[in-house]
Computed example of a mutant assay.
Amino acid sequence: MDFTNAFSWMNIRFLFDGLLITLEVAVLSIIISLLMGTLLGVLRYLKIPAVSKIIGFIIDVIRNLPLLLIIFFTYFALPQLGIRFDIFWSTVAAMSIFESAMISEIIRGGLISIPKGQTEAGLSTGLTKMQTLWYIVLPQGLRTMLPSIVSQLIALIKDTSLATIISLPELTHNAKIIYGQDTSYVIPMFVALALFYFVICYALSLLSKRLEVRLAK
Rank of each mutant, 00 (worst) to 15 (best):
V213G: 10
L20E: 15
S8Y: 08
Y135A: 14
Y179Q: 12
W134S: 14
G122K: 07
W134F: 15
L193V: 04
I87K: 15
T74H: 05
D159A: 09
N5E: 13
L46M: 10
Y75I: 00
I30Q: 04
F3L: 13
L156K: 06
L168I: 06
I136T: 11
A194S: 12
L171A: 04
F85P: 08
S8F: 05
L204A: 09
I48M: 06
K176L: 12
I157G: 01
A93T: 12
G18V: 09
L133V: 08
I154W: 08
M95Y: 00
W9P: 10
I178V: 10
Y75H: 11
L65Y: 07
G126Y: 04
S96H: 04
G109R: 10
Y45C: 03
E120G: 07
A6Y: 00
V25I: 14
S33C: 03
V186D: 07
T119D: 14
V191N: 07
E99T: 14
A101H: 04
F73R: 01
M102L: 14
F190K: 12
T74W: 06
V150N: 12
L206V: 13
S52A: 09
V92K: 07
N5L: 11
T91R: 02
D159R: 06
M130T: 13
P188K: 00
L146S: 00
D2T: 09
G109T: 05
G180Q: 05
T128Y: 08
T119S: 15
L69E: 12
V137Y: 00
D2F: 09
V199T: 11
Q140T: 04
A50I: 15
L19W: 10
P115H: 15
Y202V: 02
V42I: 15
E24S: 14
I55Q: 01
I32F: 06
Q152C: 15
F196I: 15
L193T: 00
P49T: 02
K47H: 11
C201L: 09
E99I: 11
T125F: 11
A175V: 05
S113D: 08
L123H: 07
L193C: 00
E120T: 09
I21L: 11
D17E: 15
F72T: 07
A203D: 13
Y202F: 13
G122Q: 09
L67F: 01
I59V: 13
Y185V: 03
L67G: 06
M130L: 15
E105W: 11
T125C: 10
A216F: 10
I107T: 01
G126K: 08
I112G: 06
P49W: 08
Y75Q: 03
Q80C: 09
E212D: 07
P66W: 08
D60K: 08
S33V: 01
K158Y: 02
N11K: 06
Y197W: 01
L138C: 13
L156W: 03
L127F: 10
Y202C: 09
T38K: 03
I58T: 05
P147D: 10
I177Q: 14
T91S: 05
F98V: 04
L15S: 03
F190W: 14
W9M: 15
A101S: 05
G41D: 08
I136G: 02
A93E: 01
Q140I: 02
L127W: 04
I31C: 11
S184W: 07
M1C: 09
S100Y: 00
I21S: 05
Y135E: 14
L111D: 00
L204C: 11
Y135L: 15
L133E: 02
R63K: 06
L69Y: 13
T74C: 09
L15Y: 08
D86A: 02
L68P: 07
